[in-house]
């Protein structure tokens, strides 16, 4: 059963290899703290891969990921993911969101239509509902991508560097939406390279280096007195890969 208060992600003996080369190895990791957990690490460390495994987009070579005690499945689940490079359907802004609400019927009911419109208002795209989604600017696309993930009210939201290519005002806007959602009992796992953003948002941090979790813990302790030399080097801007 899904716990409404503190959704939990539990990873056990997880391995993902590509052509025999291990890309991610996690013996045990439990993410059960409320609020936002940031995942930090240099490029190619395996942060996005971890999120894709939790979402069920990629399948582990072996090992288990459980969400609230249930194994991850690509069919059922209460988690959604905001991809690093969002793809949009060749449809309008409205339709791109509506697709995520359709379950058994192709056409949406009036309540669902209102829900879509309210979500678009919330992310500041209320005046662009009929525009083709692919013609939106980079920042607007990220807002739409976030709205698309939020519309089905996931218990766990996985966010992969949504603000890496957008301006500070839009970054702040997106951060506010994510923080509000975290306060409303959605567990958020957020991948970022921006240490300041991690400090602004997170209560819990995880450091991944070369496919291994090298450190995790409360965000204040994590940034003030990191235990792992890799974390120290990363925070000092010395760790590149």
């Amino acid at each position: 059963m899904i716990n409404n208060i503190h959704p939990t992600v539990e990873i056990e003996n997880l391995n993902f290899s590509y052509k025999g080369k291990p890309l991610l190895n996690i013996d045990y990791l439990k993410i059960d703290k409320p609020g936002i957990t940031v995942v930090l690490g240099p490029n190619g460390a395996g942060k996005s891969l971890l999120l894709k495994l939790i979402q069920g987009i990629e399948k582990p070579t072996f090992g288990q990921i459980r969400l609230n005690g249930m194994p991850v499945s690509d069919k059922e689940g209460h988690q959604c993911m905001v991809l690093q490079t969002p793809t949009f359907l060749r449809l309008s802004v409205y339709q791109n969101i509506a697709v995520c609400l359709r379950r058994d019927n192709f056409f949406l009911g009036q309540d669902q239509k209102n829900e879509v419109l309210a979500m678009l208002e919330k992310v500041g795209l209320g005046d662009k509902i009929n525009l083709p989604a692919r013609l939106l600017s980079g920042g607007e696309k990220q807002k739409l991508s976030l709205a698309r993930a939020l519309i089905s009210r996931p218990k766990i939201l996985l966010v992969d560097e949504p603000t890496s290519t957008i301006d500070p005002a839009t970054t702040s806007f997106i951060e506010d939406i994510i923080k509000t959602r975290a306060e409303n009992d959605t567990k958020i796992i957020f991948v970022t390279h921006d240490i300041h953003q991690a400090l602004r948002l997170a209560r819990h941090a995880i450091m991944i280096y070369k496919g291994n979790v090298v450190e995790e813990g409360d965000v204040e302790r994590f940034f003030k007195t990191p235990n792992s030399p890799h974390t120290r080097d990363y925070l000092a801007g010395k760790l590149l890969r």
Binding site: V82, V99, F106
Partner: peptide, 27 residues
Amino acid sequence: MEYRELFLSVRVKKSQQFWVYLLDARY
């Protein structure tokens, strides 16, 4: 190939995907 990750990321049902593909490919 283009939408595989997208549909898995927002959990669009397979039965719905059928119509979405046709709508997307209309031109």
